[in-house]
Computed example of a mutant assay.
Amino acid sequence: MKTPEPLWLPVCGIADILPGTGVCALLGAKHIAVFRVGDNQLFALDNIDPRSGASVLSRGLTGNLGDHLVVASPLYKNHFDLRTGECLESPEHSVRTYPVQVHDGLVSVSLS
């Protein structure tokens, strides 16, 4: 059985995300945070902070914590691995990650 191709949902232009920052997108009923690290690395994860229930992770600070590329929640300062969504302080508060791509300057995310 053939795996279906992912459905890519447009978020914004790559120039709309400054390096080292994130943006929030509402895709269907999902709040998604998309981060740009450096010029070419993009990551997408749930934007809802699992401890507070607020849609704020896109406003967090990105950086490194040991070998992990992370975003720190602006509310409780938990660190989420941008590659895996793992919450480094409390793994039970981990978030989901999503595939992200850039095509012709447009950033898109797949929820599948």
Rank of each mutant, 00 (worst) to 15 (best):
D49H: 06
E86A: 13
K77I: 06
G28T: 02
C12D: 09
D16W: 03
G66I: 13
D46T: 09
K30T: 08
I17Y: 01
D39Q: 14
D16N: 10
V23A: 07
H31Y: 03
D81Q: 12
G66M: 15
I32Q: 01
T62A: 02
P10R: 10
G20P: 05
L45S: 09
A15M: 12
E5L: 15
P6L: 10
K77G: 06
P19S: 07
A15Q: 15
G63S: 15
S55N: 11
D39P: 02
S52Q: 04
G20Y: 04
V56N: 06
F43K: 07
E5S: 15
L82I: 13
C24D: 03
G53D: 03
T62S: 03
D49S: 05
A54T: 02
G60A: 03
F43Y: 14
A15K: 14
R36F: 00
T84H: 12
I32C: 00
I17Q: 02
D67W: 06
A25F: 05
P19Q: 06
G60S: 02
T21F: 04
A54Q: 11
A54N: 03
L61E: 10
V11K: 07
R36M: 06
N64A: 15
G38C: 12
N64M: 14
L88G: 04
P6D: 13
L61T: 10
N64S: 09
L18V: 13
S90N: 10
S55Y: 01
L27S: 05
T21C: 03
L26K: 08
Y76T: 01
C12A: 15
V56G: 03
R59P: 00
S90M: 14
W8E: 05
G28V: 02
L42V: 15
L42E: 08
E5C: 10
V71I: 11
L61P: 01
L26C: 05
D81K: 14
G20M: 09
G63W: 14
L57G: 01
E89P: 02
V71M: 11
S90W: 08
Q41I: 07
G38I: 13
E5G: 05
V37L: 08
G63E: 10
E86C: 06
D39K: 15
N40C: 12
G53A: 09
F43M: 05
A33W: 00
Q41E: 13
P91A: 15
L9C: 06
N40T: 13
G60W: 01
L88C: 11
L69K: 14
D16P: 01
F80G: 07
L65Q: 08
G13L: 11
C12H: 10
F80T: 07
Y76P: 00
D46Y: 11
K30N: 11
R51P: 00
R83E: 13
G85W: 15
R59H: 07
R51Y: 06
T21I: 08
L75E: 07
I48G: 02
L75Q: 03
P10C: 12
R51S: 10
S73Q: 04
E89I: 12
L75Y: 03
T84W: 09
C12T: 11
G60M: 02
G60C: 03
A72L: 14
P50D: 05
L9F: 07
G85M: 12
G22R: 05
F35R: 02
C24F: 04
A25W: 04
R36Y: 02
E5M: 13
I48H: 00
P74A: 01
E89L: 12
Y76K: 11
C87E: 03
L42G: 08
K30P: 00
P91C: 14
I32W: 01
V37R: 04
R59I: 03
G28L: 02
